[in-house]
Computed example of a mutant assay.
Amino acid sequence: MRTSPKLAAFGLVGTLVYLGLAILGSGGPRAFFSHPALWIIALSLLVMTGVALFSEGNLSPGKREDRDNRWVLAAFGILGLLLAFLPAYTDRLHIWTFGGADVRWLGVVLFIGGGILRLWPVFVLGQRFSGLVAIQPGHRLVTTGIYGTLRNPSYLGLLINCVGWSLAFRSGVGLLLTALMLVPLIARIHAEEALLHKEFGKQYDTYRAYTWRLVPWIY
Rank of each mutant, 00 (worst) to 15 (best):
G145A: 12
G174S: 13
S130D: 06
Y89N: 10
T144C: 03
W165K: 04
L185F: 09
P216F: 04
A191V: 03
F54W: 13
A22I: 09
I23Q: 07
A209N: 01
D66L: 11
L53C: 04
G57I: 14
L46W: 05
R140Y: 05
G145Y: 06
L158K: 00
L43K: 01
V183T: 14
T49R: 09
V72R: 06
G99C: 12
L195G: 07
A168H: 03
K198M: 13
W217V: 10
P36L: 07
L185T: 11
R92W: 05
G113H: 01
S4K: 06
L196I: 00
A74P: 00
V72T: 14
V72N: 12
G20K: 07
N161K: 11
L24P: 00
R30V: 12
L156W: 01
R2G: 15
L185W: 06
A179P: 13
G138C: 08
G172T: 06
K198P: 02
G25E: 12
L185P: 08
L156P: 03
L182I: 12
L24Y: 14
S4C: 04
L196Y: 01
K63M: 08
T149S: 01
Y89Q: 13
T211K: 02
L117G: 02
R67L: 14
I186Q: 11
S130C: 07
I160R: 01
L59M: 14
P184R: 12
T15C: 06
H197W: 01
L82P: 00
A209I: 04
P153L: 08
L110S: 04
V109Y: 05
R92V: 03
P36A: 09
G115H: 06
K63S: 05
P184L: 11
Y204P: 08
S44K: 02
V183D: 12
W217Q: 08
H139M: 06
G57L: 12
P61W: 08
L182E: 05
G157W: 00
P137I: 12
G114K: 11
A9L: 14
A31V: 00
L158F: 07
W39M: 05
T211W: 03
G114Y: 10
K198E: 15
G126T: 08
I189E: 08
L86S: 05
F111T: 11
S4R: 09
S55Y: 04
L196M: 04
G14W: 10
W217K: 12
L182R: 08
R104G: 01
L7F: 13
A9G: 14
P184D: 14
F129N: 09
F123N: 02
P121W: 03
F10R: 12
V124H: 02
A42D: 05
I23A: 10
Y204H: 14
T211Q: 04
H94G: 11
